[in-house]
């Protein structure tokens, strides 16, 4: 059995005195797509921020098991919920920025690498456009291209399908799958989009009330007895969730 790439134990996050996540345990297996699902405000994004080192923990530990025996830090890429493209740079320059910053490459080689990344997300034609000239789907794909610019080992996707129409959402899901395959990367997805995630993920965590309500493979989620989980994956059972909410 392979070792987890990231292992978080007894992890708690508080904002001031408000509990966001309460003593949860999470394992991220290498080369897998792990999805954190749940309604808004249950702490999914905070968990992603904690795992990517953007916020500090109240308690608990996060261990990163490095691929490299010399313990070279994990290369990570993050797709932010709002894409977070630098607005004063073109799509090309956005993707080129991390490469320019970390490697002193000749312009010709840099150009080839960036165009390769843009080709992967079908955006070669938009290389010279600025973020405010792109559609929602194109902006998301440009942000994905930037997140994979440094060939990361680990990619965090924060709500990759939010605000996308079904066709765009599906193409982004395919893109994520393609990236994982080609980059041999590990992916963590934060989402409340159920259908696409169940097709895409290898392992899912469903959060409710700041703790984990379900964890397992997408194939086993339908067998969960938890009424919240059932209601979450099958919106037609929403009334059950409501009665569950009322009871608790």
């Amino acid at each position: 059995m392979s070792t987890a790439l990231i292992q978080a134990d007894n992890l708690s996050i508080y904002y001031d005195s408000q509990c966001v996540l309460n003593r949860i345990n999470v394992k991220i297996m290498p080369n897998q797509t792990t999805a954190f699902m749940g309604p808004s405000g249950v702490g999914k994004s905070s968990l992603l921020k904690a795992l990517s080192g953007q916020i500090s923990l109240h308690s608990g530990t996060i261990n990163y098991n490095y691929k490299d025996p010399n313990r070279e830090p994990l290369k990570t890429g993050i797709l932010f919920q709002d894409n977070a493209l630098l607005l004063h740079l073109t799509v090309f320059e956005n993707v080129a920025l991390p490469i320019r910053y970390h490697y002193n490459l000749p312009e010709k080689i840099l150009n080839e690498i960036v165009m390769m990344k843009l080709h992967a997300v079908n955006l070669e034609h938009a290389a010279d456009l600025f973020p405010d000239q792109l559609s929602g789907g194109m902006t998301r794909r440009a942000a994905i291209a930037r997140s994979i610019a440094l060939d990361p080992d680990l990619i965090f996707y924060d709500e990759p399908f939010a605000g996308q129409d079904p066709i765009n959402a599906e193409s982004i899901a395919k893109l994520i799958k393609k990236m994982n395959k080609h980059l041999d990367a590990t992916s963590i997805i934060i989402t409340h989009e159920v259908n696409l995630t169940l097709q895409l993920a290898d392992y899912i965590y469903i959060f409710d009330k700041h703790s984990i309500a379900f964890q397992g493979s997408p194939q086993t989620v339908s067998k969960s007895k938890n009424p919240f989980v059932q209601a979450f994956i099958n919106p037609s059972l929403k009334s059950d969730a409501q009665s569950y909410e009322d009871k608790t």
């Binding site: 993050i78 977070a84 920025l97 930037r146």
Partner: peptide
């Protein structure tokens, strides 16, 4: 605005030094 729209966080995630850049 860079902070508000997560551009600063994006730069940090790319290990770009905010102080230097």
């Amino acid at each position: 605005i860079m902070r508000l729209t997560d551009q600063i966080n994006a730069l940090k995630s790319m290990q770009v030094s905010i102080q230097r850049y």
